[in-house]
Design a protein around this nucleic acid. Sequence first.
DNA 1: CCCTTCGATAGGTGTCCACCTACGATTGGG
DNA 2: CCCAATCGTAGGTGGACACCTATCGAAGGG
Lengths: 143, 143
Amino acid sequence: MPDTPPTLTVLTTYLLSQVGRSARATLAARLADRDARLWHFAVLAALADFGPHTQRDLAARLSIHPSDMAKVLEDLTTSGQVARDRDPADRRRVVVTPTRVGTKALAAHLADATAVQDAVLAPLTADERELLHRLLLRVHDGG
Amino acid sequence: MPDTPPTLTVLTTYLLSQVGRSARATLAARLADRDARLWHFAVLAALADFGPHTQRDLAARLSIHPSDMAKVLEDLTTSGQVARDRDPADRRRVVVTPTRVGTKALAAHLADATAVQDAVLAPLTADERELLHRLLLRVHDGG
DNA sequence: CCCTTCGATAGGTGTCCACCTACGATTGGG
DNA sequence: CCCAATCGTAGGTGGACACCTATCGAAGGG
């Protein structure tokens, strides 16, 4: 019965929006089972990829409002996934560093994300997934 | 500065989510300029593709809660884009029919959606867009 | 002809998300 | 040494979204 109108499904952006929304929601639900949220994942990923950041730099990198970043980091520190230390050179700044707990959490998040991705992309072959990824990467970078 | 962590960009679902989210937001903003919202677009598309519906059928087709559908249709009737008439055979039901105004509005929405899509998919050639669409369609239907 | 069921709708709830402001602590230029 | 700018943080705002309940009118089986 939920037969989507062709007028919508001919729009690639409609498909993008629907599929992306659904994948996002599925992953968010899985992360929630371990009391994690998508922003926690993103922060841990940024720290793993680029090393310790100032809170402000973290916020800028992930395009999130500094006041929201503070809340995310509040969560991550109380659960011991990151350490927040005042920068001795400039005691206004706080340097955020991932802990071992945080690194393990990131690994778990990645496993979840991969599982969700496998489920979402199940209709495609490995080659097709690779192709899709390349196309999306260009769209993402070029927009 | 907003250099996205590779740990995220290697995830196809991350790209899907980001690109889809951004496209959706852009279209929503354009529709808002004409006092329309995404659900208005979806309802008009369903009516154009499948003809008049009962409110309940419309809600089921678009996977939206009946009480929310009532609100969307309230908007569309006050702006004259659809007509709501009691079904004479069962006066509980309300049959929703698009008006000429609604059909013109749908055309405008489609023009907006196409413009947004062209902007989003700008990095890709026509063949690549076609390919992307086919892949996404399979993911969408198969999930 | 009653009583249950159904369709539409008003009104409210909770979540997510992204924003903004005010404030205290700190810095560094003049 | 002071003053403007900066950093983190608490608290609040507003919109989008999806849900749920109560109510009313109508239908239709027993």
